[in-house]
Simulated assay, not measured.
Amino acid sequence: MKKKVKLLVTFIMGLMLLAGCQSIGNFFKSTQEQFLGLNGTIRTFDENSQVIDKITGKSISIESDDRFDITDVNGNVSKESSVLDITVGGNQVIHVGSTLIFSENGLTDYMEKYADSVDIYSDNRSLPFVNRFFNEIKNNVSGESKLILVRSQTGTPLATYFGNRVSTFAPDGIPNTTYLLVDGKRLIIYRADFTIYDTDLLK
């Protein structure tokens, strides 16, 4: 009996270690996206960092459209396609070029949430933007230790997310794209810059 209990405890501890590993979490999240899709929101942005469209749906999957891969004379892929083939609940969206952000349900874009109450585009240069933004909303953030700032390719802030466990991954076969795992939730950034800060640095 004691041996069975020890085996059970060892098994549970092993599962906990696996669950705590971001790489394992990313594998399962990618598998979920591939076979079941993820529930969340897709936004694209124009060159002035304004939102072009916003699609919220279920069973969302994002892949590279390999019809646009460039191949050499031997048929080997020399440059992978930057065209995104997006499925939203059985419907299709083809996207290329402009910045795109996908956030799984459970993630909050604090820049969007507090856009009406926080002076995001202040002319005051005495305090950097990230520090100022964090100081204005920190009472509304439940103790997360990481801040993710997503910026356009021209440097304009687009979105801000918070989390405790944040990891980045390069998706296989999708250029110009970064996959993040934020406390177990998927964040996908296409054609945009981003920085991850320890919030202790911003106080």
Rank of each mutant, 00 (worst) to 15 (best):
N74V: 00
G57R: 09
L84A: 06
G75P: 09
T108E: 14
I70H: 05
E47W: 05
I52A: 06
K54T: 06
K58E: 12
G37A: 05
T87D: 01
N39C: 07
D109W: 05
I52W: 11
E112S: 13
E47S: 13
G40H: 01
D46V: 08
D65K: 04
T41N: 11
V83H: 09
L107A: 04
D53F: 13
V83M: 06
F45S: 13
L84N: 01
G106T: 04
L107R: 00
M111H: 05
D69G: 08
Y110Q: 10
I62K: 12
R43T: 14
S49K: 12
T41P: 03
T56Y: 07
K113G: 06
I55K: 01
R43S: 13
V51H: 03
V51K: 00
A115S: 10
N105F: 00
G57C: 11
N76D: 14
T71Y: 07
I42T: 01
D109Y: 03
T71K: 03
T41E: 14
R43D: 14
S98P: 03
I60Y: 01
S117V: 15
E80N: 11
I55W: 11
T41F: 08
T99S: 13
V51Q: 12
S59E: 00
I60N: 06
V93Y: 14
S117C: 04
H95I: 02
D109N: 14
F45L: 05
V77E: 09
I52L: 15
I42S: 01
E63S: 15
G37M: 04
T41G: 09
L84D: 00
D66R: 12
L38T: 09
E80T: 15
D116G: 03
R43C: 09
L100G: 09
Y110C: 07
T71S: 07
V93W: 05
F45R: 03
A115E: 15
S81V: 06
N48K: 14
N39I: 10
D65W: 01
N76W: 02
R43H: 04
G90I: 02
S103V: 02
D65P: 10
N76I: 04
I86N: 10
A115W: 03
G40F: 09
G97K: 07
D46L: 10
T108H: 03
D65I: 10
N39A: 14
S117I: 15
S81Y: 09
G75N: 08
S59A: 12
D66S: 13
D72Y: 10
E80M: 13
I94T: 13
S81H: 05
R67T: 12
S64G: 15
I94K: 11
E63T: 06
I42W: 15
D69N: 15
S98C: 04
S81I: 06
I62Q: 00
N105R: 00
T108L: 11
D46I: 09
T44Y: 06
E63G: 07
T99V: 05
T44R: 00
S117Q: 15
G37L: 02
I42F: 12
E104C: 10
I70D: 07
G106K: 00
N105H: 01
V88I: 12
S59R: 14
F68R: 07
N76G: 04
D46N: 15
N48E: 10
F102G: 04
G89K: 11
D66L: 06
G75M: 13
I70Y: 07
S49Q: 08
D66Q: 11
I60F: 03
L107P: 02
T99M: 11
G75H: 05
I55Q: 12
